[in-house]
């Protein structure tokens, strides 16, 4: 069992960083929130839903309200940035018009372009993902997430596979966008400076439970580094 007796409440609109050493269950915890990992027990309430009790259509509806950004961009590399962003509309539409920008309705294309503009990549709309840098690809993934118009944004180490500058850009974009949309942001990061700078609250996992829970302003990088070394 990775976690036991873990109790955590997160307020709507807040920005929370989850930290912890490898293997403490950070990714498992945030994946369990939308049942990308099935929880073996316990109780998860998210956006007014009891997650474990949801049937397949209910789970699909919940997932459509939650934007998930992964450690890797998880885009289709052979397709254009615009088509990948259009895919985000599948949270509320289905059918061939959501499969490619070629068939997408005018308003969906326009919204996808707006999402790309918000992450500063409108000029790369027709570029294939495999021609973009890692940081740009991750920002396209953020744009796809924005197409969902999410109420909650979950990010699993979105800065992990990027160089320091790109990682910081992606985190800044995520935090700013969550702020603009009044969406809750929960992110996992191994970079202490990102945890402090882009969150209001830091939750540290250790020994399968919450071992640290403080406002970001009340902790220093040195304290967080000590936390890592202890747990």
């Amino acid at each position: 069992m990775i976690m036991s007796g873990l109790d955590l409440d997160i307020e709507h609109g807040s920005r929370v960083a989850i930290i912890g050493a490898n293997g403490t269950g950070k990714s498992t915890l945030i994946r369990m929130l939308v049942r990308l990992v099935e929880p073996g027990g316990g109780d998860i309430r998210l956006l007014g839903e009891t997650v474990r009790e949801l049937d397949a259509p209910g789970l699909k509806r919940l997932r459509s309200r939650v934007g998930f950004v992964f450690q890797r961009h998880n885009l289709v590399t052979r397709l254009s940035a615009l088509t990948n962003v259009v895919h985000g509309v599948q949270s509320r539409m289905s059918g061939p018009r959501t499969w490619t920008q070629l068939l997408a309705p005018r308003q969906v294309r326009a919204e996808a372009m707006h999402c790309l503009e918000r992450v500063g990549l409108a000029d790369k709309a027709m570029a294939r993902i495999d021609t973009l840098s890692g940081g740009q690809s991750q920002r396209v993934a953020v744009a796809r997430m924005l197409m969902q118009r999410p109420e909650l944004v979950i990010a699993d180490e979105p800065d992990a596979s990027l160089d320091p500058k790109s990682g910081e850009e992606v985190m800044a974009t995520l935090a700013a966008l969550a702020n603009e949309q009044d969406a809750t942001l929960i992110f996992v990061s191994h970079r202490m400076e990102h945890a402090i700078r882009f969150s209001e609250r830091i939750v540290g996992l250790g020994g399968g439970r919450v071992a640290l829970d403080k406002p970001s302003g009340a902790v220093s990088e040195a304290e967080l580094t000590r936390f890592f070394h202890h747990d």
């Binding site: 997932r63 459509s64 939650v66 998930f68 992964f70 895919h87 949270s91």
Partner: peptide
């Protein structure tokens, strides 16, 4: 990865396969 990402945003099976 792309399949998991689309599944996480609530896409249906056909959407995942086609996209």
């Amino acid at each position: 990865g792309p399949r998991e990402a689309l599944s996480a945003l609530g896409a249906n099976r056909l959407g995942m396969i086609m996209s």
